[in-house]
Design a protein around this nucleic acid. Structure first.
Lengths: 328, 328
DNA sequence: CGCCACTATGACAACGTTGTCTTCCAGCGG
DNA sequence: CCGCTGGAAGACAACGTTGTCATAGTGGCG
């Protein structure tokens, strides 16, 4: 900036004025300054600016499990759209479902003085956030609740959706329904399990724990589970996949299986409608989830001090075929 | 920081020493300072630190077309992994295939003094980057070249892959092959078209322009194209989809079509192997693309001054079924 | 002609850190 | 008892900006 000032023959303050479009600068002077800026390739240092002004940094942080997972990337995109409309940039990070990593990312973002944080939390302990929130960094929890602290939260109706899935399968004649989901440490998996159990009870079928498998989904873990659940004297005739990852592994396993159970997946996913049979899903609007959370965050950034809110977004069953086959 | 100093009864410089793990601080003093930090919830301001030290900010920028597109989110993830291993955070942005928006994002990132920029460029004009690069911000172009400036670039073998796709289809008896891709303004689409043409020539079939449709893929545009190409007296018996978006729309259209041509998609995508028939693709390693670009970028960040490099990653045909059906 | 209002510009401090240099004090050898 | 060494801590400036206040010049009005 001082280089620009020297070249234009003005003071550094005048350069600042030009850069900030402040009035009270003579057009000729402004032009000289602009020329100097152009010539030197000057670009104002936003870090210094934010430091001096004590204002917001114009960034928000987004922490998800894995930015590469289509579910989270759709979320990322929705958040980005809102952020852009508020003139903010987005710092993203993948926690890899590891609460230490999540914490590291959050604190790093706080050190960078992000204006707010959106987090799909990895664990249930978030006490470390209290000082940051008290210091004025708003935090919104997304898809999963905070656990041990009170904070804004946007969820989907995990229980209602799973209850609906069970009801749908029972309506089509199934009484032995398996439930395959991610580790019970993950909130959504636990909630969907509760929904599964409640669905069984409400629809008058026994809740059979031996038909429930909850493990981090991999090709092997899902494959093993499926082989066990679909064989034996009293096999499952239908399967509910607890999320899109489970669903994908499940589909890949079933592709080579002799017996094809009915199936419903929690979470919609691309091409589900083109498989054979098309996959019925409990769909929810991932973009809406990101939008709602980001809008809530920016309300806080702009000073909304009202009590923490909890938003639960609706889900709905999309019947495409895989959930409507009768028990074999 | 001065609050912490006051509470601990030391000077602000001593707090700085503690925060930075510098030696020459008495253990008792350090403990008092730590306690004060804890009590006040102090977190050092990285912006101020970077300003003072004049060092790197520990951030890189990544600009893609759409962070929500599975192709780019996989890229994002790969980049993030490398960035993390170098202790950096990633700022992401979607250009929406709009070169003005891309420019805005790049300049914004430069103002934030990112240590480097990875960009999937939206246009062919990048002169605006020259001053930034001269000022020391390394830039690596990803998936598409810079166009009018010399810079590090990581591409995939678009031409070779498409030639291979044509050869494969011809080997299975096809002579009327359609090519459906994104707008020719997009580098990869243009290159793949060149590959298509070269494939026709090399394999002794006529290159027929009426079988080529290049438009931004939407359900409508692809649907219209398919209906036109597959009807009439001399319809296409095979289709090459120029990218994963085209492929998805194409599949959705064909699902309801009477005539099912052979098909090969450039870009692999999730569940391609589970469709009926499984979709043959020209696959490339998207993660490797992101990794290679990020590694190149960090080499530059760490001072590698060698001549700009151009890396072309190999692609390979994955025959799954859809490309092996005979002409009807 | 003197005063005021207004425009254009600059000097200076401050934002929160850290690098450099200085100060203070205890311990030790001669 | 003196001078020296080394460890612990502080004073101060600087990073690149911008807010505040001061200054210089110009034109209008009584």
């Amino acid at each position: 900036m001082s280089d620009v000032a020297r070249l234009a023959g003005v003071s550094i303050k005048t350069v600042s004025r030009v850069v900030n479009d402040e009035p009270a600068v003579h057009p000729d002077t402004a032009e000289r300054v602009m020329a100097a800026i152009e010539q030197l390739g000057f670009r104002r240092n936003l870090g210094a600016r934010n430091l001096r002004r004590g204002s917001t940094t114009g960034t928000i942080g987004l922490i998800v499990e894995d930015v590469g997972n289509p579910f989270y990337s759709e979320l990322n995109r929705a958040v980005e759209r809102i952020a852009t409309s508020f003139g903010r940039q987005v710092l993203t990070g993948s926690s890899e479902e590891n609460s230490d990593r999540e914490r590291e990312l959050v604190l790093e973002f706080c050190s960078r003085r992000v204006d707010g944080i959106l987090v799909v939390p990895a664990g249930m302990q978030h006490g470390y956030l209290v000082p940051e929130m008290r210091a004025g960094t708003p935090v919104v929890f997304l898809d999963r609740p905070a656990g041990d602290i009170v904070a804004d939260t946007v969820l989907v109706d995990n229980i209602g959706g799973t209850v609906e899935a069970v009801a749908h399968l029972v309506k089509h004649g199934h009484r032995r329904i398996a439930f395959l989901a991610d580790s019970p440490d993950i909130f959504t998996a636990g909630e969907r399990l509760r929904g599964f159990r409640e669905g069984c009870v409400r629809n008058g079928i026994p809740y059979d724990e031996s038909l429930v498998v909850m493990r981090t989904p991999t090709a092997e873990s899902v494959g093993d589970a499926v082989r066990r659940l679909l064989t034996g004297p009293n096999p499952a005739t239908a399967v509910i996949a607890g999320n899109n990852r489970v669903a994908v592994h499940l589909l890949r396993t079933l592709a080579h299986a002799r017996r094809r159970p009915a199936m419903i997946s929690f979470d919609d996913f691309e091409l589900a409608d083109l498989l054979d049979p098309p996959v019925s899903v409990i769909a929810h609007d991932v973009s809406a989830l990101g939008r709602a959370a980001a809008e809530l965050l920016f309300a806080r950034v702009q000073g909304d001090q009202s009590a923490p809110r909890k938003v639960v977004l609706p889900v709905h069953l999309v019947a495409r075929g895989s959930g409507e086959v009768a028990p074999s």
